[in-house]
Design a protein around this nucleic acid. Structure first.
Lengths: 243, 243
DNA sequence: TTAAATCTTTGATGTAAATCAAGTTTTGAA
DNA sequence: TTCAAAACTTGATTTACATCAAAGATTTAA
């Protein structure tokens, strides 16, 4: 069951247990939307309270049940956020890219994490301690506005996903997902799946077998073309969305 | 209640499209968690920018596609927030009680509403305009902390629900729901369903028929006892959660 | 109070998608 | 580069649940 054969449970309480420590803080603060609108001097102040930590591919960043006391901002790499069902089945919730953050839930509520976060590739992360963050938010209210904007976006997405899982058939969920991949930006309607089909299945609340079959079916219908494992060309978006 | 009788209407500019207008602002600001921790003088300032509106049972408060420009705080009554699937199927997302708020999503993001809000019973609501709210948040950063705490709680719930819909069978989802109803507080393990079974079905991503059958099944197993339409006694919580 | 509308239950039937199993392909670490 | 471990595909089978239909409840409004 336990796929993370992590060497040791490293508690990154402070900085610098890992390699790339200091200095990186700068880039981190500068790239995240919640901070990068501030004055240079303010950013420098923030750098003072951030800690940079590096995680190897597969390493766990936090687990459900952990006491949450930091905000985690992805500086480089990719982080998967997932939950486990009662039966231990994994469900992928989202994938963080540089500039995204997590850990905030418990930060404001003194609760434990309910989700897991692990590094999908070698990843560097900046952390800000609960109390430091609260100070920052009180001192620079505009940060709060950014954080709230991000929260509300996430909330919107989470509720949209909830509705899809509750009301749409698998075909439709796949079609909607493909359409969203397309939106982002793509050469001649060609998309690259941002995750493995196993993960996609988990994200969409289905199984890899079903994903495989449905994609084949969509190709048969002439709506898409399967180019390679991760590449798909959308041929008829309108029909796709009418499924 | 009844404090409105003693009040005269001032300080609200474009209030009074509906009946019960003045005076209620006070109770509204005083009861919501995002404001009620403030100083009296600060609350009074906030009252100055809130508008009280009454909705009759069934009235729509906002619809998907509407431009969102206000925060809605429930003062009295009950509000259902729901979405429509691509096929027009309704999905209940949550039910707001006095003190809860909605409309915030688009408030920080200049987007349109994606959900619908309608009054389940006669309801009175306080609204705060986008710009007024932003001023308040910048002026009183502690309000932001409250709002973020509420957001993160909602996010947690939304993601939990997503995971349940994606990974659990209907039995389990029902069992988990019943268990949550129990938590809140209940005499001798007796719970009162907070919504119709039709709504519950929608919330849990299933159908009323299935709800009906599964509840009967749970009774047969001896885990619960169906007292009346809306009342259920939980007999064996542990077994219920092991389904 | 009564009738209409809405919700709920129960039964019969259909089906989408999960599961199981066994190959094939891709990936990544040594 | 090679080889083992994952990930992916395809087929056969099972099943959980939706759908349809029609009879009881309950709620609502006149």
């Amino acid at each position: 069951m336990n796929k993370e054969k992590t060497m040791n449970n490293n508690q990154h309480t402070n900085c610098c247990h890992h390699d790339n420590c200091s200095g990186n803080n700068e880039s981190c603060v500068a790239i995240v939307p919640i901070f990068n609108h501030l004055e240079k001097s303010q950013m420098e102040e923030i750098m003072g309270v951030t800690h940079s930590v590096a995680y190897k591919k597969g390493e766990v960043i936090y687990s459900a049940g952990d006491q949450a006391d930091s905000l985690y901002i992805v500086n480089m790499g990719r982080v998967r956020i997932y939950r486990l069902s009662e039966a231990g089945k994994e469900q992928l919730l989202r994938i963080l890219k540089p500039g995204d953050f997590t850990g905030e839930l418990a930060l404001f509520n003194e609760t434990l994490h309910e989700a897991y976060a692990s590094a999908m590739v070698d990843t560097s992360i900046c952390t800000v301690k609960r109390l430091d963050l609260q100070d920052l938010l009180l001192k620079y209210p505009s940060i709060s506005l950014k954080v709230m904007a991000e929260f509300s976006r996430r909330l919107e997405r989470a509720e949209r996903q909830t509705t899809r899982l509750a009301t749409e058939k698998v075909d439709t969920r796949i079609a909607l997902f493909l359409a969203e991949c397309l939106e982002v930006g793509s050469m001649n309607n060609e998309i690259t799946l941002p995750m493995s089909k196993k993960d996609l299945a988990s994200y969409l609340g289905t199984t890899p077998e079903t994903i495989s079959r449905k994609l084949y079916e969509l190709e048969t219908l002439g709506y898409i073309r399967l180019i390679s494992n991760k590449k798909i060309q959308i041929i008829d978006l309108d029909s796709l969305l009418l499924i």
